[in-house]
């Protein structure tokens, strides 16, 4: 395992259902898998964790969170009527590392923008992920937004810039991407136990992608990514995987910890190179 640079990676869904008090079995399985990944990630004691959540989407350049400690309450604008729509957060960001990352993004010819404002809306996916992976707030995060219009290659470059920053700083870093698989929501208010992937075709696509990832064939997934996006409405065109791959976080076969439906969408918990 490398001493510095990117040493591990994880991919998980950011739907708040994972925090439900009375979850569907599939939500509970995904949540337990995410907690296990968190335990193993913390065992690795990374100096910093590079984070990208598809739910923090922006359109101007690549936005970086530069508030060292955003904290507060976020009531989700869609799920507010459920216990899991009510989210508290207290996040620790490694600002000096983030500054270094932004410098690398700028040097690579992309526009990095620093964000540090009281009351800045932290996205649901980031809050859910930090609650599951790091309940005691031991990890230090460095987060970049998911630019709506950046193509997969550009996001890969943003990830690569993060890895270069980690090597330059001489730190051990992990990468976490928060993304769903297929994103076909069930357009009804359902009971948890009736959750299912909304379209059998989406389910088949999700399983095909997961099979390739667990076989270590990330490049093949990146090749079929656009078809996956079109035919299964992949979350943000599954560009989060390109970001993780660009950072070098997806080397070797992925471990699949859980896969299941989240209000009709597909969610999976995957990890690479965790102890």
């Amino acid at each position: 395992m490398a001493d510095t640079g990117i040493v591990a990676g994880a991919l998980l869904p950011g739907m708040p259902h994972l925090l439900a008090e009375k979850p569907a079995q599939c939500w509970a399985d995904l949540a337990a898998a995410a907690r296990e990944v968190g335990d193993r990630l913390r065992r690795l004691k990374p100096d910093v964790v590079l984070l990208l959540s598809t739910q923090w989407f922006t359109v101007l350049g690549h936005q970086f969170q530069c508030d060292p400690n955003p904290r507060g309450e976020h009531v989700d604008e869609n799920w507010y009527a459920y216990d899991y729509g009510e989210l508290r957060y207290d996040l620790r960001f490694d600002v000096p590392f983030t500054e270094r990352w932004t410098d690398h993004v700028n040097k690579a010819g992309m526009q990095a923008r620093r964000t540090r404002y009281d009351g800045f809306p932290i996205d649901t996916g980031t809050i859910v992920t930090s609650a599951l992976l790091d309940p005691d707030r031991e990890l230090r995060w460095a987060q970049v937004s998911c630019n709506l219009y950046a193509d997969a290659e550009t996001l890969a470059d943003v990830g690569a810039a993060g890895a270069a920053a980690a090597r330059e700083a001489g730190v051990r870093a992990a990468v976490v991407v928060v993304t769903g698989l297929s994103s076909g929501l069930i357009q009804q208010w359902i009971e948890p136990h009736s959750d299912h992937v909304s379209d059998p075709g989406h389910d088949r696509w999700n399983r095909r992608v997961l099979d390739l990832l667990t076989a270590g064939k990330v490049d093949e997934v990146l090749k079929i990514r656009e078809d996956f996006a079109r035919q299964a409405q992949a979350d943000s065109q599954f560009r989060a995987l390109a970001f993780a791959a660009g950072a070098g976080a997806t080397a070797g076969p992925a471990q699949l910890h859980a896969y299941g439906p989240l209000w009709g969408t597909g969610g999976a918990v995957l990890s690479w190179n965790l102890p």
């Binding site: 359109v59 869609n78 929501l185 069930i186 208010w189």
Partner: peptide
Amino acid sequence: TMVGHHVNCVPNPRGVSVEPIFP
């Protein structure tokens, strides 16, 4: 809203709204 059409029925919404893209 990912599911359905929502109507704000809060009598007196108040707070600070920070724009996520142009904060």
